[in-house]
């Protein structure tokens, strides 16, 4: 691991054709989700009474057709993708944040504190957290805040474990001892010396987390426990489409395919990043 190491990681990723393609695809989906509504001026909430559940037609006003209420499927899919990505990014940020903090503290403190914190992690890991999230939505009602919190809270466990392991091995390195000997406090040691040195695996792992969280969010939204009307995520759109699939399959196909391609691209990108990182670590050591 060296200072000039960040560049070779991206170079290596660029050399991986599948990874590069996935990154391009992701950029494409994201830009369509962001810019699509500008190109296609249909209002996602606007109801077109003259076009209830019309089939897709590229020359018409509704490229992907309309749903049962006459809302434009293309614009709604863009909206849904944007919401799904946004939820995933925020929830990933939450879980990465909690995980880094917990893992760094446990790994740096070591000894009994570490043992206790890891035991807690083990118990939490044994819990079927998804059911717990469902349970929480039952108790506290449904809503986006809870959704973020719940997904974020579920995702941090592996990140904490990763960071803790990295921190433990860093802790034995002399430059950490040197900083302590200088008089640097725990906050400074963790912030200045530990975190920058665990950043690379954290980034890789976070990339691998994003598709899981996209899936999780769409799953909850599909069940009606996640994003609520009138907002829509890909999960709620798939749920709507599934209900209408006999009469109007396009309402299902657009968001369903979008979700599938999104997950595929995220997975492939994560794998490629992990391979690139593993290759670099192997060269570095």
């Amino acid at each position: 691991m060296n200072g000039a190491g960040a560049l070779p990681l991206w170079r290596r990723l660029g050399a991986d054709r599948a990874g590069a393609a996935a990154a391009l695809f992701l950029a494409l989906i994201a830009s369509i989700a962001l810019l699509g509504p500008l190109v296609n001026p249909n209002d996602p909430a606007a109801i077109d009474w003259h076009a209830i559940a019309v089939a897709p037609r590229l020359e018409g006003a509704h490229w992907f057709g309309t749903d049962r209420l006459g809302r434009d499927v293309f614009v709604r899919t863009c909206d849904g993708a944007r919401v799904s990505l946004l939820v995933a990014l925020v929830a990933t940020a939450i879980s990465v944040g909690i995980g880094i903090l917990y893992g760094a503290v446990a790994g740096y403190a070591g000894g009994r504190v570490d043992e206790l914190m890891m035991r807690l992690l083990e118990v939490l890991d044994g819990l079927p957290l998804l059911f717990f999230v469902i349970f929480l939505t039952v108790i506290f009602g449904r809503g986006e805040t809870l959704l973020f919190a719940a997904i974020g809270a579920v995702g941090w466990l592996s990140m904490a474990r990763l960071v803790r392991g990295q921190t433990l091995s860093l802790r034995r390195r002399e430059f950490i001892e040197a900083a302590v000997a200088l008089g640097a406090g725990p906050a400074r040691v963790i912030g200045v010396h530990v975190l920058p040195n665990v950043l690379a695996p954290v980034i890789v792992y976070a990339t691998l987390t994003v598709p899981q969280i996209v899936l999780f969010e769409s799953f909850l939204s599909f069940l009606g426990l996640g994003v609520q009307e009138p907002a829509a995520s890909l999960g709620t759109l798939v749920a709507e489409g599934a209900a209408e699939m006999q009469a109007a399959p396009w309402i299902l196909l657009a968001p369903g395919l979008c979700l599938g391609v999104l997950l595929l691209a995220l997975n492939v990108l994560g794998d490629a990043l992990r391979d690139a990182f593993a290759a670099r670590a192997a060269v570095g050591s």
């Binding site: 691991m1 200072g3 002399e174 430059f175 900083a179 040195n197």
Partner: peptide, 11 residues
């Protein structure tokens, strides 16, 4: 310390 490289933060 003994090992000069190990005692310096590589980042």
């Amino acid at each position: 310390f003994q090992d000069p490289l190990a005692s310096l933060d590589p980042r």
